[in-house]
Nucleic acid binder design. Sequence first.
DNA 1: ACCGTCGCCATTTTT
DNA 2: TGGCGACGGT
Length: 731
Amino acid sequence: MYDNLNNEQKEAVLTTQGPVLILAGAGSGKTTAIVNRIAHLIKDLGVYPSQILAITFTNKASQEMKNRVKNLIGEDAINMWVTTFHASCVRILRREIDKLGYTKNFIIYDTYDQKTLIKDCIKELGINDKEITDKEIKNKIGEAKDNLISPDEFKNINQGNYRNNKIADAYLLYQKKLKLNNAVDFDDIICKTVELFIKNPEVLSFYQRKFKYVMVDEYQDTNKAQYELVYLLAKEHKNICVVGDDDQCIYEWRGANIRNILDFEKDYPGTKIIKLEQNYRSKSNILNAANGMIVKNHNRKDKTLRTEKEAGDKIKIYKAYSDINEGSFIAGQIKKLIDQDGKNLKDFAILYRTNAQSRIFEDSFNRIGIPYRILGGLKFYDRKEIKDILSYVKFLYNSSDDVSLRRIINVPKRSIGDTTVAKLQEFASNLDIPLFEAIDFINQDEKFSSRNTTALNKFYQMILNLKSKTELSVPELITEILKDTGYLEELKKSPDVEDRSRIENLEELVSAAAQFDESSEDKSLEAFLEKVTLVSDIDNYDETADTVVLMTVHSAKGLEFPVVFMVGMENGLFPGTSSFDNIEEMEESRRLCYVGITRAKELLYMSHATTRTVFGRTSSYAISDFIEEIPKDLKIYIGEETPVYHKMVKEDSVHSLRSLYKTDLKDKVETVIKHKDDGKAIPGQKVKHIKFGVGTIIKADSDGNCVKLTIAFDNMGIKTLMLDIAPLEFI
DNA sequence: ACCGTCGCCATTTTT
DNA sequence: TGGCGACGGT
């Protein structure tokens, strides 16, 4: 039955009892292994599907897993919990959250709602928002929640710390407000579930008995809270199987703890370790390049991926003389590969570290007419108009949701301005009731003018009327909202072209809702809201659409492409400047690069530009250390080694740019040359500073006359110095 | 209540 | 450079 699996995969499928750690390298067929393991449990061992819990991080991954299990065992699969961490926790919380003092119709706040609420807290506590920003508070709260630190504990830990103490107050208030609004944030979804289990042993026991077999995918990216959740659930039966690859841990900056996977055997005595080291994805040169660079990391489990595939082409390293040149080179290569090698558009992926880098490629692709899609950046559900309408939906579902109420109360304009809302807020706070309820009482209060009360009452009536329509199907309800609130009408009246696309987006929202209504089992409002708040951009990535795709390396995890272009491979960009400061970050960056390389099946290009525009100024960076770390015989340099200024002049004449642009470029060329002649002040150059000691230039910024150097000193961290005045010596 | 301008600030983001 | 949020003037 499992003849198409290799020996290790078979072992992973057949080892069902006790803790199992499957170290699955990139492209090693881990999903195949898990899916077959589930089938084996159900078909051969008679385990009920309802006794299996399989957790992933993304909807896309869970969808794929569910479908593949369905193909193997049929419709039985629907009783199985194959979901994301968040979706499974929400499911549990929907049933049990009243035990924590919330009501079951709680809603989920996304990061924007979260930000609004935190700003409220800042205001209410009189915190100086210049001194402690909402961003910092949000990060600290998130970090605390990732590590299961409650507001009270946080306050305790930070007794002596003035700054964190204020943040602790914000955390306390924030949590209180969430509860008042009957809302949870993303992090709460996990940690409230853990809290629920700890405070209610009988609830925990129920789920422990239910789930005889627990499986977790991408285990290397779990944080403390997720670790604890899994640990609690698996404690009873100890049939826990985690799958992961420590080399692909790229979310440490978001609380993922690589120790979870590195120490798994210690946490679960008697662990059986299975390594999947056979790679089925990449040509051997690509795989060996990945292997060759990742061994530079110290914090990892020892393993080496192997492949039976042919060597294939060497990694092509392209040295561009500018970011624009990098873009046009790649556009040209894609065109060439399509015309000459019969490749399709969808075979290509451009991977970068930061979203901002997409722009230049968009320009070059537009110029020569290459269709492309960008993943990431602004999500569909994050668009203003979509969020507005969804706030209405959320609010109709849960009228304690003050954050949503305040978002929509004056959208479209209905003469309820900030001052009126502030008055209402104060009034409601005094009575300790939600804003909406408060509107019912304002008529008796003389603080409100008759203009206020009319406007508010009108709004109140409108909402009541809409509330009576919540029994409609979701697409119908949304249509009603668009109509009754006058939202659509206002957009239609607007002469602004942007509002045109807003209307289109709203139409798309209605069709998305219609599609949800057709295809989902649970067609309820709450199911829709959950779906909408818990989707990501990548979930909607359709791999069959024939266009080139652009995305960050992070988003590309789990995907594969025949041809991959890793761009912006420069010290200071990838790895980023701050990675030079500490080893952990550098190692994570290297893992990110590893993830990028291992996305490629047949061809891999890595490019770097000697000059690029960053924040409006021209900077130059040295080639990425990560490229240097790839063994020499696996790569080939295809950029011409012509001096910078020649290339620039040539580019001018070839593209016959506007004369203005020409002079501009020439100026830049001259500055670059001048400084190079002056003092070798280019990235990659080793220097000695009179005070800071030895270091390496990682970035050179030229701004008219002076050059700013960013230097990573061996013992002093990163400093930015002026070339003209810094006591530097080139060594 | 609304609009324009100024100044600040820049990773990565599975949910 | 450019996008966003805070602020001040009408």
